[in-house]
Simulated scan of single mutants.
Amino acid sequence: MGLQIHLVYDLQGWCCVSIITFVWLYNTLYVPKLILFPHYEEQHIPAAVIVLYYMVSLCCITSLVRASFADPGQLPQDPDIPYSERQLWEICNKCNKMRPKRSHHCSRCGHCVRKMDHHCPWINNCVGEDNHWLFLQLCFYTELLSFLTLLFNFCQYYYLEPLTKVKEELFVFRHELAMLRISTLMGIVMFGGMFGLFYGQLSNVIADMTTIERMSSNLDEMLKSSKPWQQTFSEVFGTRWKILWFIPFRQRQQLRVSYHHANHV
């Protein structure tokens, strides 16, 4: 995927990305300021809890930014098709360009994307072969960050000992209950909304199918699985090292050999 930046000029998409960024920024600033750091100073929680929260938050925003700006697999204007693979390509009936099978034309972006899963307004980008792994990481870390936020909010309200050194002059402490409720509400919405999406994405990867292919296939085709799940995940994440599946700071390597395997649109 390299360092190529892919921009989609869509006002609705940028609004959706701004909402996600605001939720991330609110909880990343609020939870440590009101809960983690004060209780750490009074030795109610260990430093490892703060490090964990910031690491998950960093992975979440990194996967969001990279998934939003990464090239999902847009085909070049004049692709160089090897003679031995020409039977694996087809002509798009919308843009009249050659594309590998399992590609799809995105009407929002106006071009074909290799192994396109869907166009996601929440990252203002298509989810395709080259950034699908980042989208999966975004789903995972959003779920994890939302869970930790809800857990710390619950502990703040019901479990942790009262603070003895509360700076009442600070805004976050003067409006603690209101900010706690806002954070909890956003955590519930993000966790619940992302759960179904993440589950569907995992099911698709295991079945070696995209969302578009699943919507256009019958039930018998969807139940077929010709690859072990380790192989399908390795192809999506570009590595067979499972620990690297969780790291959004690396570069993805191409492991898939051909585009014609399994079902295609």
Rank of each mutant, 00 (worst) to 15 (best):
K94A: 04
R250Y: 12
R86K: 15
W241L: 09
T142M: 06
H111K: 10
Q43D: 14
E169M: 06
R174P: 02
N263T: 13
L148H: 03
Q201D: 08
C60I: 00
Y26L: 11
E41P: 01
L244Y: 12
V189H: 01
V113I: 15
W229L: 08
L177F: 14
C126G: 07
S146V: 08
H264W: 14
R181E: 05
M55A: 13
S183M: 00
L160D: 03
F69V: 12
I61H: 03
N125D: 12
I5K: 14
S226D: 15
E168G: 08
T211L: 07
N27L: 00
Q254K: 14
Y259H: 14
I91R: 12
I188E: 04
T149R: 00
L58P: 01
C95F: 09
T232G: 10
T62C: 14
W122A: 05
S216D: 10
A47T: 11
E169G: 02
C95K: 10
T149A: 05
M186K: 00
D71Q: 10
G196H: 05
L75Y: 03
T184C: 10
W241P: 00
L25H: 06
Y30W: 06
R240E: 11
N27W: 00
K167C: 07
D71N: 15
K97T: 07
I247N: 15
S258L: 12
G193I: 06
G200L: 06
P248K: 07
R108N: 09
E168M: 10
C139F: 06
V265M: 04
V257K: 15
P100Y: 04
E176Q: 15
S226A: 13
R108M: 10
F135T: 00
P121W: 02
W89Q: 06
V166T: 14
P82R: 07
V127W: 01
N124P: 03
Y26P: 01
R250G: 09
R108Q: 11
W133G: 00
Q4M: 11
I35W: 01
M116N: 03
T142I: 03
T239D: 07
T28R: 02
F152N: 02
H104L: 03
P228Q: 11
S203F: 06
E41I: 09
P248A: 09
C139T: 13
V113C: 04
